[in-house]
């Protein structure tokens, strides 16, 4: 991934409406993103486009992800702890 595209992603992950989402996405970008396969990276980018409430409900397990392509990355986000 190009520098500019990654920086844009970083901005969109760490300037969210909810602190909870800022923290989880920021952590994922730092610790996990670069170890992901390309399809996992694409899934993460798609998830980062979700609105804050929906994303937090997925991460916190209150909702289940209906899009099978994204489910593995949702699981990784849930596991991404300090």
């Amino acid at each position: 991934m190009e520098r500019a595209a990654f920086e844009r992603l970083r901005w969109r992950c760490t300037r969210r409406g909810m602190l909870e989402v800022d923290m989880v996405l920021g952590r994922f970008l730092k610790a996990v993103f670069w170890k992901c396969s390309e399809s996992e990276q694409q899934a993460f980018i798609a998830l980062a486009d979700y609105d804050d409430m929906a994303l937090w409900r997925l991460i916190s397990g209150r909702d289940e992800c209906e899009d099978a392509r994204l489910t593995p990355v949702v699981a990784m986000l849930r596991e991404c702890k300090p």
């Binding site: 969210r16 909810m18 609105d51």
Partner: peptide, 12 residues
Amino acid sequence: SKVFPTRSHTVA
């Protein structure tokens, strides 16, 4: 806005 409007902190 620094972010897309509906991602403003009011959302919290």
